[in-house]
Design a protein around this nucleic acid. Sequence first.
DNA 1: CAACACTAGAGAGTGGCACTATCCAATACA
DNA 2: TGTATTGGATAGTGCCACTCTCTAGTGTTG
Lengths: 200, 200
Amino acid sequence: MRISELSEETGVAVATIKYYLREGLLHEGERTSTTQARYDTSHVARLRLIRALIGVGGLSVATARDVLDRLAEPPESLHELLDTAHPPLRPQPDEEVDTTSAAEVLHELGWELRTAHSEPVRRLAAALEGLDSAGFPISREDVLNYARRMHQLAEAEVAGTPQDPGEALRYVVLGTILVEPLLLALRRLAHIELSGRLLP
Amino acid sequence: MRISELSEETGVAVATIKYYLREGLLHEGERTSTTQARYDTSHVARLRLIRALIGVGGLSVATARDVLDRLAEPPESLHELLDTAHPPLRPQPDEEVDTTSAAEVLHELGWELRTAHSEPVRRLAAALEGLDSAGFPISREDVLNYARRMHQLAEAEVAGTPQDPGEALRYVVLGTILVEPLLLALRRLAHIELSGRLLP
DNA sequence: CAACACTAGAGAGTGGCACTATCCAATACA
DNA sequence: TGTATTGGATAGTGCCACTCTCTAGTGTTG
């Protein structure tokens, strides 16, 4: 398959494919000469994955490359993967955030996390701070309820993790990134459905 | 309060405040002369809200303005608000998406939505399509389970909606936008917590 | 084998976005 | 009176995700 065919197959412009090749998101094709290379179904699948990560996943090109690189590496342990290598979904606020409130929440939940200042904790802290500074009232109890619901949901997800390390890695990373937009879409639709039934 | 004091109070640069004024996100101060205006606590609160929407909320400046505009308008009905005016969280893919699969899911759930091709439905369709094209296996059953969990969560949220229309509007719009990062952060932390307990 | 289409690779260019910097004339304050 | 600050307007910046252009080489078709 030539690059133009790959482009047609996936709907990605040739120039963009070249760009992804340059940026290391897509592995090179098998060279047949100085100015020719052959691509196969693995490139099609990879390209679709890239578009999903960047499109619905909302990742930047650089982050998508990191995620794809990580998928290629064998994981030390699943827990370590989750704890340290959680792929950022959106450009995280690099400002410093106060994690004490987040830590309190986690303590009340009894979630003993080894790394108290890891990226996900800062993410939680930033979310709480955002609600607070926006003047949007959310009680500690509400936060805990949200947390318990997400924990239940996560239980079902973790239970479904494949045994094979490579499979598990893919499941966790893609499940984290690509299921998020699904959850948010479903929540909004649930809001609509409920308001339609409950209100005149 | 002068603009420099407003800047100090909120940590937003003067030039940026001027930019928000130009873009219509922030209401103008009370003019005291040709080159002077007075700002008050309403500007502080508004500015904090703007930063939260743009920062943790991940909205673009243009979308944030739309959201803020909508908050100022009295809602016709809550349902209409939810159904037609749901603020986009991330730049939605303006490409056309096939909503048949999404419609099937909604039908199986028994969620009777009046507008089958509204923005949230397209969002769901895009999420499903993303998972599919990324080669990430997710069964219809899993999607339905996710949906049921989100529905439960939404029930608690809708139950907490204030009676006053203005309050309700604020609750719904900000609750939608600002709670999303909270939920995602909690899900990730729950994954970590579970993997820490379940795995060696 | 000649004419044309296609390709890899590299560099420069584009358009959008969210600021940020610079100016100016007109106040405000010390 | 003199220095600081402001509103308003315009231009510039840095980043990002492409997109375009070019060159020299290669495949392919009649």
